[in-house]
Amino acid sequence: MSDQEHINYNRIAEAINYIQTNFKDQPNLDEVAEKVHLSPFHFQRLFTDWAGTSPKKFLQYTSIEYAKKLLKENKATLFETAHETGLSGTSRLHDLFMKIEGMTPAEYKNGGKNLSINYSFADSPFGNILVASTSIGICHISFVENKTQAFSILQNQFPNANFKQHLDLIQQNALFIFNHAWHKLNQIKLHLKGTDFQLKVWETLLKIPMGQLSTYGNIAKQIDNPNASRAVGTAIGDNPVAFLIPCHRVIQGTGKLGGYMWGTTRKTAIIGWEATKINIEQETDFIK
């Protein structure tokens, strides 16, 4: 690390510590920039390059994590939570939760109490899967080694939701992806919750054509955060929808496969399967 990089690292570390310590005061960009002796413009760019997100969004994530802790522990009302988090009122708390978590503060506090989730188990070319959906779209797909454990992981995401083992039309449309219907991927509705950064990464993954690969570095460049490869890797690892959001198509810049939540053997098999299907399709088109 060069001397300048070391200085920049220390500045961003100081800024992160300041935000985490003073988030209840909701410091603005100018205040934090002044603490690390940079202009607001230079600080904004430097922080985004090093942290993978803007100072404002980092403050939002810090605030909401604290609010989630209060709500989960059931130690405060929504009004008290907003006040303790440094927000001006429950409306700002509501907006923050909807933007980052995809649900209202009350829904989070109730663990998805009013949310109805259908789920089912199905076979795929790569083993059993658990697929779950709300009235909006697919909210979860995972490869399954143990059905009880897989369902428990789903329940932990929405501890108070109403679960029903039922294969609905939304799930059926999603499962067609394994039967040569990948061209209809844009017709499959998803119900995702995540940070702006995570959603941006997952959206970028959806643009990787079937049968092709990308790298963590390329994904970082596509979301205009070229130095955020590690943050991209973390967001990819948090992908809640296996296969449909094709995190298996992302490899290391060296050409190595890299990790995969559901095992590198399965990742290798999926990549090979997709390449084969594309080759067969191209050969068929050529014959026609």
Rank of each mutant, 00 (worst) to 15 (best):
P105N: 03
K68L: 04
V36K: 02
Y66N: 04
S63E: 14
A181D: 10
S54T: 09
I153P: 14
P209S: 01
A269Q: 10
Q165C: 06
E281D: 08
S142Y: 05
K68T: 04
G259Y: 12
G263C: 13
F79I: 03
G211N: 03
Y66A: 00
H248C: 04
L130P: 09
R266A: 00
K200L: 03
F97Y: 03
L190N: 10
G102E: 05
G52K: 00
G217R: 04
K164M: 15
L38V: 09
A275M: 12
L167W: 06
K193R: 09
I129S: 05
S133M: 03
V232W: 13
G111Q: 05
F143D: 08
E73S: 02
E281C: 04
G272T: 04
N74W: 08
F143H: 12
I278P: 03
S135E: 15
K200P: 05
N10S: 15
P40R: 07
I129W: 01
I129D: 07
S39T: 15
I117F: 11
T134L: 05
D168S: 08
E84G: 01
I64S: 04
I223Q: 05
L206K: 00
L192H: 00
F158E: 12
T234V: 15
Y18T: 10
L169C: 12
K69Q: 11
K147H: 11
A275K: 13
K207D: 10
D123Q: 08
G253D: 10
I16Q: 15
F126V: 03
H42K: 12
R92F: 02
T62D: 02
V144H: 06
A161C: 08
K207W: 03
C139L: 08
E5Q: 09
S39R: 15
G112E: 10
Y119C: 14
S152V: 14
F97H: 00
A161E: 09
A161I: 07
N8L: 15
S135M: 14
R45G: 10
F97M: 01
L167N: 10
H6E: 15
T195N: 01
S142M: 10
I16C: 14
